[in-house]
Design a protein around this nucleic acid. Structure first.
Lengths: 258, 258
DNA sequence: TCACTATGTCCATTAATTTGACTCTTGAGT
DNA sequence: ACTCAAGAGTCAAATTAATGGACATAGTGA
């Protein structure tokens, strides 16, 4: 019987600290107010405050100009020393390639890094006309690619807006889109759970994208299928969407159920 | 008794938890044994064990096949929700550009992400022959670029070796180098604090690179100056090395002294 | 200005944490 | 296979730190 985990040999304060850190993570770089955290965790205000004060003294948490708390960049550095949840992307290649074989087009798997999406995998299908806007191990701004639209849709709205605002410094990032048209697209991804767009990132390129679901917190992985607009019609998109979603779910399963 | 630094309003267990997390981060994906952690933190074995057991139950920490503890991928995800220590890279551009103006060549600032280096900035100097192997917002494998050599030299040796081993799956990543010649180069960077190489990443490209020092833990940023081999002679490299180091130190200061 | 809401602080009570000593596990050497 | 040592994991009495209700303070909007 190994199911005797509860109760003995565990530290309550550590559990609560983890709860608070997780809740802070959920709120992202915008930060959370003390009250948000007490509600989110179910702990009493003094308790949250005391733990938060300690975490702040330890520089794991910092305060924004307002009275908001957020994870500090030290947490970012710590994260760099932890293994990526994706592990070796090559492990996921067969799954992504299988989808490419079935649909014939180019399939991407991308991971968010700050304001960018990093393309981990690109798998080719058999269709003779290929759209190679980006290759594996390349990085595109979140506002520049199809996968980025899924990732923007997955993060808290205000955070996504921050990314878009920063990107407006360089209009070229938006390709054929504009900040406002992008906002509309992202909103549609939020509502529908997928993005479908043609001639928007680049003329002559159409894409279908979904976020890879993530049990805790917002998605940081996205998949997309890229093709030419003539081929990626709305009907066809609706046709392959279930397969794309299924593949994304499979990847989510492989990552969490490691 | 001992110094009571700030006994008011701080939680001892949280402090110790932070200590342990930091120590775990220091040991990287390889993980640390219980004894390493008790020595590293100065806490008693049962205390470390209990906190570790809780962190493991909370999935912030995982156990490797052996009896080693390491940060889990949940910490990685948490880190993604924290602001990058670099903040807005544009803030650092003037410093990097100033160096490019002074030395005339192309100067890069790169950040480590997993097994890759992500090029945050590329600043051009006035010298007419330019080497543009990589542009800003692109990603190269750590073994493929000059900055990667600094980053590999900055991380624990066994971890760097893991990266190199994974990369040997794809020999093309090494360019004109080989896994063994790369190991030698990285070792030299460890000894000297800088890397200088010609025609190794690509024929016709020479580079000088240093890690950006980091107070806590290993460096995750590196700078490099790229030029043609005829120009980047050893004398010239030694000439501009102090400036490169000074600029790296300046960037380190801006990041920590936010 | 005055409410009102959220944050920060205090302290007696309570309950969790500490620590030394003990046991268990693993693996190396004979 | 057997022994032994080093590290990992466990336990319980003593201690110490954590808790949360109540109070104080700082913002915020009318």
């Amino acid at each position: 019987m190994e199911e005797t985990k509860d109760k003995s040999g565990k530290s309550q304060v550590v559990e609560r600290t983890c709860l608070i850190l997780r809740e802070l993570g959920r709120h992202g770089p915008r930060g959370a107010r003390l009250l948000d955290l007490t509600e989110g965790t179910g702990l009493s205000r003094p308790t949250v405050h005391r733990i938060l004060a300690t975490l702040t003294a330890e520089q794991f948490v910092e305060r924004t100009n307002g009275r908001r708390y957020r994870l500090s960049s030290i947490m970012y550095e710590l994260g760099l020393n932890a293994p990526s949840p994706v592990g070796d992307p090559a492990r996921l290649r067969p799954i992504v390639q299988a989808l490419a074989d079935r649909c014939g087009d180019t399939v991407y798997l991308a991971m968010r890094t700050g304001d960018f999406s990093h393309y981990l995998l690109r798998c080719e299908g058999a269709y003779p006309i290929r759209t190679h806007v980006v290759s594996a191990n390349q990085t595109l701004h979140l506002v520049s690619g199809h996968s980025g639209r899924s990732l923007l849709a997955s993060m808290p709205e205000d955070e996504a807006e921050d990314v878009i605002l920063r990107a407006t410094q360089d209009r070229k990032l938006f390709g054929e889109a504009t900040p406002d048209s992008l906002r509309d697209e992202v909103e549609r991804v939020r509502e529908n759970g997928y993005g479908w767009a043609r001639d928007v990132t680049f003329v002559g390129v159409a894409g279908l994208t979904v976020p890879v679901p993530n049990a805790r917190g917002s998605a940081y992985l996205a998949m997309s299928i890229s093709s030419i607009p003539q081929r990626m019609t709305q009907e066809r998109a609706m046709d392959i969407l279930p397969e794309l979603k299924a593949t994304a779910a499979e990847i989510a399963g492989m990552i969490s159920g490691d």
